[in-house]
Design a protein around this nucleic acid. Structure first.
Lengths: 162, 162
DNA sequence: TGAGATATGTCAATAAGGCTGACTTAAAAA
DNA sequence: TTTTTAAGTCAGCCTTATTGACATATCTCA
Protein backbone atom coordinates (compact mmCIF):
# COMPACT_ATOMS: atom_id res chain seq x y z
CA UNK A 1 0.00 0.00 0.00
CA UNK A 2 3.01 2.26 0.33
CA UNK A 3 3.20 4.68 -2.60
CA UNK A 4 6.75 5.45 -3.60
CA UNK A 5 7.86 9.05 -3.36
CA UNK A 6 7.16 10.93 -6.53
CA UNK A 7 9.50 9.53 -9.14
CA UNK A 8 11.88 12.39 -9.99
CA UNK A 9 12.40 10.88 -13.46
CA UNK A 10 8.68 11.06 -14.13
CA UNK A 11 8.75 14.80 -14.68
CA UNK A 12 5.71 17.01 -14.53
CA UNK A 13 2.47 15.16 -15.19
CA UNK A 14 0.86 15.90 -18.56
CA UNK A 15 -2.32 17.21 -16.93
CA UNK A 16 -3.49 18.78 -20.17
CA UNK A 17 -3.48 15.57 -22.18
CA UNK A 18 -4.85 13.52 -19.28
CA UNK A 19 -7.84 15.80 -18.90
CA UNK A 20 -8.44 16.41 -22.59
CA UNK A 21 -8.55 12.67 -23.16
CA UNK A 22 -11.06 12.30 -20.33
CA UNK A 23 -13.42 14.99 -21.60
CA UNK A 24 -13.03 14.01 -25.27
CA UNK A 25 -13.93 10.41 -24.54
CA UNK A 26 -16.92 11.44 -22.48
CA UNK A 27 -18.40 13.45 -25.33
CA UNK A 28 -17.40 10.83 -27.89
CA UNK A 29 -19.58 8.17 -26.25
CA UNK A 30 -22.39 10.59 -25.43
CA UNK A 31 -23.62 10.91 -29.03
CA UNK A 32 -25.02 7.37 -29.30
CA UNK A 33 -26.50 7.56 -25.79
CA UNK A 34 -29.47 9.63 -26.94
CA UNK A 35 -30.46 7.03 -29.57
CA UNK A 36 -29.76 4.06 -27.30
CA UNK A 37 -32.21 5.41 -24.73
CA UNK A 38 -35.03 5.30 -27.32
CA UNK A 39 -34.56 1.54 -27.56
CA UNK A 40 -34.05 0.94 -23.86
CA UNK A 41 -30.43 0.05 -24.55
CA UNK A 42 -27.24 1.11 -22.79
CA UNK A 43 -23.61 1.42 -23.75
CA UNK A 44 -23.05 -2.29 -23.32
CA UNK A 45 -25.55 -2.91 -26.13
CA UNK A 46 -23.73 -0.39 -28.30
CA UNK A 47 -20.40 -2.13 -27.87
CA UNK A 48 -21.81 -5.57 -28.68
CA UNK A 49 -23.75 -4.32 -31.70
CA UNK A 50 -20.72 -2.45 -33.01
CA UNK A 51 -18.29 -5.35 -32.97
CA UNK A 52 -20.79 -7.88 -34.29
CA UNK A 53 -21.60 -5.52 -37.16
CA UNK A 54 -17.95 -5.01 -37.93
CA UNK A 55 -17.10 -8.70 -37.84
CA UNK A 56 -20.02 -10.76 -39.08
CA UNK A 57 -19.78 -14.37 -38.00
CA UNK A 58 -17.97 -13.52 -34.77
CA UNK A 59 -18.22 -16.25 -32.12
CA UNK A 60 -19.13 -15.74 -28.46
CA UNK A 61 -15.57 -16.47 -27.35
CA UNK A 62 -14.11 -13.96 -29.80
CA UNK A 63 -16.56 -11.30 -28.68
CA UNK A 64 -15.72 -11.93 -25.00
CA UNK A 65 -12.06 -11.56 -25.87
CA UNK A 66 -12.64 -8.17 -27.49
CA UNK A 67 -14.91 -6.78 -24.79
CA UNK A 68 -13.05 -8.34 -21.84
CA UNK A 69 -16.19 -9.05 -19.86
CA UNK A 70 -17.58 -12.32 -18.51
CA UNK A 71 -20.01 -14.42 -20.51
CA UNK A 72 -22.68 -13.82 -17.85
CA UNK A 73 -22.39 -10.09 -18.45
CA UNK A 74 -22.46 -10.50 -22.19
CA UNK A 75 -25.38 -12.88 -22.07
CA UNK A 76 -28.03 -10.51 -20.76
CA UNK A 77 -27.15 -7.80 -23.25
CA UNK A 78 -26.80 -10.16 -26.20
CA UNK A 79 -30.10 -11.88 -25.38
CA UNK A 80 -31.89 -8.53 -25.51
CA UNK A 81 -30.32 -7.63 -28.84
CA UNK A 82 -31.37 -10.99 -30.28
CA UNK A 83 -34.91 -10.79 -28.85
CA UNK A 84 -35.42 -7.32 -30.26
CA UNK A 85 -34.25 -8.45 -33.68
CA UNK A 86 -30.93 -6.64 -34.05
CA UNK A 87 -28.62 -9.65 -33.96
CA UNK A 88 -28.96 -13.27 -35.07
CA UNK A 89 -27.11 -16.24 -33.62
CA UNK A 90 -26.54 -19.37 -35.69
CA UNK A 91 -24.90 -22.70 -34.91
CA UNK A 92 -21.52 -23.17 -36.54
CA UNK A 93 -21.19 -25.66 -39.38
CA UNK A 94 -17.56 -26.69 -38.88
CA UNK A 95 -17.92 -26.67 -35.08
CA UNK A 96 -21.52 -27.03 -33.96
CA UNK A 97 -20.67 -25.90 -30.41
CA UNK A 98 -19.98 -22.40 -31.63
CA UNK A 99 -22.50 -19.65 -32.33
CA UNK A 100 -21.88 -17.22 -35.15
CA UNK A 101 -23.30 -13.75 -34.58
CA UNK A 102 -24.51 -11.34 -37.25
CA UNK A 103 -26.47 -8.12 -37.33
CA UNK A 104 -29.88 -8.14 -39.01
CA UNK A 105 -30.76 -5.36 -41.47
CA UNK A 106 -32.19 -3.34 -38.57
CA UNK A 107 -29.12 -4.08 -36.47
CA UNK A 108 -26.79 -2.99 -39.25
CA UNK A 109 -28.71 0.26 -39.77
CA UNK A 110 -28.58 1.05 -36.07
CA UNK A 111 -24.87 0.24 -35.82
CA UNK A 112 -24.24 2.40 -38.87
CA UNK A 113 -26.12 5.36 -37.40
CA UNK A 114 -23.94 5.17 -34.27
CA UNK A 115 -20.77 5.01 -36.33
CA UNK A 116 -21.87 7.94 -38.47
CA UNK A 117 -22.57 10.09 -35.42
CA UNK A 118 -19.14 9.35 -34.04
CA UNK A 119 -17.50 9.84 -37.44
CA UNK A 120 -19.10 13.27 -37.70
CA UNK A 121 -17.49 14.25 -34.41
CA UNK A 122 -14.13 12.86 -35.50
CA UNK A 123 -14.29 14.68 -38.84
CA UNK A 124 -15.21 17.97 -37.18
CA UNK A 125 -12.19 17.55 -34.90
CA UNK A 126 -9.92 16.61 -37.80
CA UNK A 127 -11.01 19.73 -39.64
CA UNK A 128 -8.77 20.33 -42.62
CA UNK A 129 -5.75 18.44 -41.35
CA UNK A 130 -3.65 16.81 -44.04
CA UNK A 131 -3.42 13.01 -44.38
CA UNK A 132 -0.06 12.98 -42.60
CA UNK A 133 -1.62 14.59 -39.54
CA UNK A 134 -4.40 12.02 -39.57
CA UNK A 135 -1.90 9.19 -39.66
CA UNK A 136 -0.07 10.84 -36.78
CA UNK A 137 -3.21 10.87 -34.67
CA UNK A 138 -4.15 7.27 -35.37
CA UNK A 139 -0.55 6.25 -34.68
CA UNK A 140 -0.68 8.05 -31.36
CA UNK A 141 -3.92 6.33 -30.36
CA UNK A 142 -2.50 2.95 -31.36
CA UNK A 143 0.59 3.47 -29.20
CA UNK A 144 -1.64 4.39 -26.24
CA UNK A 145 -2.79 0.76 -26.28
CA UNK A 146 -0.90 -1.84 -24.20
CA UNK A 147 2.03 -3.07 -26.28
CA UNK A 148 1.09 -6.72 -25.90
CA UNK A 149 -2.40 -6.01 -27.24
CA UNK A 150 -1.45 -3.74 -30.08
CA UNK A 151 -1.08 -6.43 -32.73
CA UNK A 152 -4.46 -7.87 -31.83
CA UNK A 153 -6.14 -4.47 -32.07
CA UNK A 154 -4.39 -3.71 -35.37
CA UNK A 155 -5.72 -6.90 -36.92
CA UNK A 156 -9.15 -6.11 -35.62
CA UNK A 157 -9.18 -2.47 -36.67
CA UNK A 158 -7.33 -2.53 -39.97
CA UNK A 159 -7.51 -6.14 -41.03
CA UNK A 160 -11.19 -7.05 -41.41
CA UNK A 161 -11.72 -10.53 -39.95
CA UNK A 162 -8.46 -11.66 -38.23
CA UNK B 1 -37.71 5.56 -33.23
CA UNK B 2 -37.32 5.56 -37.00
CA UNK B 3 -33.68 5.73 -37.98
CA UNK B 4 -33.10 7.75 -41.14
CA UNK B 5 -31.58 5.94 -44.10
CA UNK B 6 -27.82 6.09 -44.02
CA UNK B 7 -26.89 9.69 -44.73
CA UNK B 8 -25.11 9.63 -48.10
CA UNK B 9 -23.23 12.80 -47.11
CA UNK B 10 -21.83 11.03 -44.07
CA UNK B 11 -19.38 9.02 -46.14
CA UNK B 12 -17.70 5.86 -44.89
CA UNK B 13 -17.52 5.63 -41.11
CA UNK B 14 -14.05 6.14 -39.64
CA UNK B 15 -14.06 2.70 -38.04
CA UNK B 16 -10.32 2.83 -37.42
CA UNK B 17 -10.41 5.99 -35.31
CA UNK B 18 -13.63 4.95 -33.53
CA UNK B 19 -12.11 1.68 -32.42
CA UNK B 20 -8.63 3.00 -31.67
CA UNK B 21 -10.18 5.64 -29.42
CA UNK B 22 -12.19 2.96 -27.63
CA UNK B 23 -9.22 0.67 -26.97
CA UNK B 24 -6.83 3.52 -26.16
CA UNK B 25 -9.16 4.93 -23.54
CA UNK B 26 -9.71 1.52 -22.00
CA UNK B 27 -6.00 1.00 -21.45
CA UNK B 28 -5.51 4.63 -20.38
CA UNK B 29 -7.86 4.23 -17.40
CA UNK B 30 -6.65 0.73 -16.58
CA UNK B 31 -3.30 1.85 -15.16
CA UNK B 32 -4.70 3.47 -12.01
CA UNK B 33 -7.18 0.62 -11.49
CA UNK B 34 -4.53 -1.66 -10.00
CA UNK B 35 -3.60 0.89 -7.33
CA UNK B 36 -7.20 1.91 -6.64
CA UNK B 37 -8.09 -1.68 -5.82
CA UNK B 38 -5.47 -1.71 -3.02
CA UNK B 39 -7.41 1.06 -1.28
CA UNK B 40 -10.86 -0.34 -2.01
CA UNK B 41 -11.49 2.56 -4.36
CA UNK B 42 -12.94 2.64 -7.87
CA UNK B 43 -12.74 4.95 -10.84
CA UNK B 44 -15.24 7.33 -9.32
CA UNK B 45 -12.79 7.93 -6.46
CA UNK B 46 -10.01 8.53 -8.95
CA UNK B 47 -11.97 11.21 -10.79
CA UNK B 48 -12.90 13.05 -7.60
CA UNK B 49 -9.38 12.89 -6.20
CA UNK B 50 -7.90 14.07 -9.48
CA UNK B 51 -9.99 17.19 -9.87
CA UNK B 52 -9.80 18.16 -6.21
CA UNK B 53 -6.02 17.83 -6.36
CA UNK B 54 -5.83 19.89 -9.51
CA UNK B 55 -8.08 22.66 -8.18
CA UNK B 56 -7.60 23.05 -4.45
CA UNK B 57 -10.49 24.88 -2.82
CA UNK B 58 -13.04 23.53 -5.30
CA UNK B 59 -16.63 23.66 -4.01
CA UNK B 60 -19.15 20.83 -4.18
CA UNK B 61 -21.17 22.61 -6.87
CA UNK B 62 -18.11 23.17 -9.03
CA UNK B 63 -17.09 19.54 -8.71
CA UNK B 64 -20.58 18.36 -9.65
CA UNK B 65 -20.40 20.58 -12.70
CA UNK B 66 -17.12 19.02 -13.84
CA UNK B 67 -18.13 15.43 -13.20
CA UNK B 68 -21.75 15.78 -14.35
CA UNK B 69 -23.13 13.44 -11.71
CA UNK B 70 -25.71 14.03 -8.97
CA UNK B 71 -24.73 15.13 -5.51
CA UNK B 72 -26.06 11.84 -4.11
CA UNK B 73 -23.62 9.93 -6.31
CA UNK B 74 -20.76 12.24 -5.43
CA UNK B 75 -21.54 12.13 -1.74
CA UNK B 76 -20.86 8.45 -1.16
CA UNK B 77 -17.52 8.57 -2.92
CA UNK B 78 -16.44 11.87 -1.41
CA UNK B 79 -17.39 10.73 2.08
CA UNK B 80 -15.10 7.71 1.75
CA UNK B 81 -12.20 9.85 0.51
CA UNK B 82 -12.65 12.19 3.47
CA UNK B 83 -13.02 9.36 6.01
CA UNK B 84 -9.87 7.66 4.75
CA UNK B 85 -7.93 10.92 4.99
CA UNK B 86 -7.28 11.77 1.34
CA UNK B 87 -9.46 14.87 1.10
CA UNK B 88 -10.46 17.60 3.57
CA UNK B 89 -13.61 19.69 3.46
CA UNK B 90 -13.74 23.12 5.09
CA UNK B 91 -16.48 25.69 5.46
CA UNK B 92 -16.10 28.71 3.21
CA UNK B 93 -15.16 32.04 4.79
CA UNK B 94 -16.83 34.38 2.30
CA UNK B 95 -19.87 32.11 1.94
CA UNK B 96 -20.29 29.81 4.90
CA UNK B 97 -22.75 27.58 3.00
CA UNK B 98 -19.99 26.37 0.74
CA UNK B 99 -17.44 23.65 1.38
CA UNK B 100 -13.94 23.96 -0.01
CA UNK B 101 -12.24 20.69 -0.88
CA UNK B 102 -8.52 19.99 -0.78
CA UNK B 103 -6.31 16.94 -0.94
CA UNK B 104 -4.28 16.02 2.14
CA UNK B 105 -0.60 15.16 1.75
CA UNK B 106 -1.57 11.50 1.31
CA UNK B 107 -4.28 12.48 -1.16
CA UNK B 108 -1.89 14.58 -3.18
CA UNK B 109 0.68 11.78 -3.31
CA UNK B 110 -1.94 9.30 -4.47
CA UNK B 111 -3.30 11.68 -7.12
CA UNK B 112 0.22 12.35 -8.30
CA UNK B 113 1.01 8.65 -8.64
CA UNK B 114 -2.06 8.21 -10.84
CA UNK B 115 -1.11 11.16 -13.01
CA UNK B 116 2.44 9.89 -13.36
CA UNK B 117 1.26 6.48 -14.48
CA UNK B 118 -0.96 8.03 -17.11
CA UNK B 119 1.76 10.48 -18.15
CA UNK B 120 4.15 7.57 -18.70
CA UNK B 121 1.68 6.00 -21.10
CA UNK B 122 1.15 9.30 -22.90
CA UNK B 123 4.88 9.91 -23.23
CA UNK B 124 5.49 6.42 -24.55
CA UNK B 125 2.80 7.04 -27.17
CA UNK B 126 4.21 10.45 -28.03
CA UNK B 127 7.62 8.90 -28.56
CA UNK B 128 9.93 11.36 -30.22
CA UNK B 129 7.26 13.49 -31.85
CA UNK B 130 8.17 17.14 -32.23
CA UNK B 131 6.34 19.87 -30.26
CA UNK B 132 4.20 20.73 -33.29
CA UNK B 133 2.88 17.19 -33.39
CA UNK B 134 2.07 17.34 -29.70
CA UNK B 135 0.11 20.55 -30.18
CA UNK B 136 -1.71 18.90 -33.05
CA UNK B 137 -2.80 16.01 -30.85
CA UNK B 138 -3.98 18.19 -27.98
CA UNK B 139 -5.83 20.40 -30.48
CA UNK B 140 -7.52 17.34 -31.92
CA UNK B 141 -8.64 16.14 -28.49
CA UNK B 142 -9.93 19.60 -27.62
CA UNK B 143 -12.03 19.74 -30.80
CA UNK B 144 -13.50 16.33 -29.97
CA UNK B 145 -15.22 18.03 -27.01
CA UNK B 146 -18.69 19.55 -27.47
CA UNK B 147 -18.25 23.06 -28.85
CA UNK B 148 -20.35 24.65 -26.13
CA UNK B 149 -18.19 23.06 -23.44
CA UNK B 150 -14.82 23.68 -24.98
CA UNK B 151 -14.19 27.07 -23.37
CA UNK B 152 -15.03 25.65 -19.96
CA UNK B 153 -12.65 22.73 -20.42
CA UNK B 154 -9.91 25.01 -21.73
CA UNK B 155 -10.11 27.17 -18.61
CA UNK B 156 -10.08 24.09 -16.45
CA UNK B 157 -7.21 22.35 -18.26
CA UNK B 158 -4.95 25.22 -19.18
CA UNK B 159 -6.02 27.99 -16.87
CA UNK B 160 -5.49 26.79 -13.31
CA UNK B 161 -8.44 27.91 -11.19
CA UNK B 162 -11.15 29.48 -13.41
C1' DT C 1 -15.26 -46.10 -28.44
C1' DG C 2 -14.82 -43.65 -24.31
C1' DA C 3 -12.71 -39.88 -21.51
C1' DG C 4 -11.78 -35.46 -21.22
C1' DA C 5 -11.70 -30.84 -23.01
C1' DT C 6 -14.21 -27.04 -25.02
C1' DA C 7 -18.14 -23.66 -26.26
C1' DT C 8 -22.09 -22.09 -24.73
C1' DG C 9 -25.93 -21.21 -21.58
C1' DT C 10 -27.95 -20.41 -17.06
C1' DC C 11 -28.90 -19.70 -11.90
C1' DA C 12 -27.85 -17.07 -7.84
C1' DA C 13 -25.68 -13.68 -5.14
C1' DT C 14 -22.97 -9.45 -4.86
C1' DA C 15 -20.88 -4.89 -5.88
C1' DA C 16 -19.94 -0.28 -7.98
C1' DG C 17 -21.71 3.61 -9.55
C1' DG C 18 -25.11 5.85 -11.47
C1' DC C 19 -30.27 7.75 -11.11
C1' DT C 20 -34.95 10.16 -9.14
C1' DG C 21 -37.57 12.09 -5.51
C1' DA C 22 -38.26 14.05 -1.12
C1' DC C 23 -36.76 16.46 2.67
C1' DT C 24 -33.57 19.09 6.20
C1' DT C 25 -30.40 22.58 7.72
C1' DA C 26 -27.76 26.62 7.52
C1' DA C 27 -26.69 30.74 5.46
C1' DA C 28 -27.06 34.35 2.03
C1' DA C 29 -29.80 37.56 -0.63
C1' DA C 30 -33.75 40.20 -1.73
C1' DT D 1 -38.55 38.78 7.04
C1' DT D 2 -39.18 35.88 3.22
C1' DT D 3 -37.10 33.47 -0.35
C1' DT D 4 -33.33 31.33 -2.51
C1' DT D 5 -29.15 28.78 -2.46
C1' DA D 6 -25.47 25.17 -0.98
C1' DA D 7 -24.95 21.20 1.04
C1' DG D 8 -26.28 16.80 3.19
C1' DT D 9 -29.17 12.72 3.71
C1' DC D 10 -32.76 8.90 3.35
C1' DA D 11 -34.87 5.52 0.47
C1' DG D 12 -35.43 2.96 -3.53
C1' DC D 13 -34.21 1.70 -8.15
C1' DC D 14 -31.36 0.61 -12.54
C1' DT D 15 -27.36 -0.94 -15.41
C1' DT D 16 -23.37 -3.21 -15.85
C1' DA D 17 -20.18 -5.62 -14.08
C1' DT D 18 -18.33 -9.55 -10.89
C1' DT D 19 -17.66 -14.71 -8.81
C1' DG D 20 -19.01 -19.39 -8.33
C1' DA D 21 -21.45 -23.41 -9.59
C1' DC D 22 -23.38 -26.26 -12.77
C1' DA D 23 -25.77 -28.25 -17.31
C1' DT D 24 -25.57 -29.47 -22.11
C1' DA D 25 -23.85 -30.42 -26.50
C1' DT D 26 -20.05 -31.28 -29.17
C1' DC D 27 -15.37 -32.02 -30.46
C1' DT D 28 -10.76 -34.28 -29.88
C1' DC D 29 -7.57 -37.53 -28.67
C1' DA D 30 -5.76 -41.83 -26.83
Amino acid sequence: MQRPDADPAAGTPAYDLIELFFFAYRDFVSDPDRILAEYGFGRAHHRVLHFVDRQPGLTIAELLDILRITKQSLNRVLKELIEKGFITSSTGTADRRQRHLQTTAAGHDLALSFSQLQTQRIMRAMGDLDPGAKRLISGYLLRMIDADDRAHVERLVFGGKN
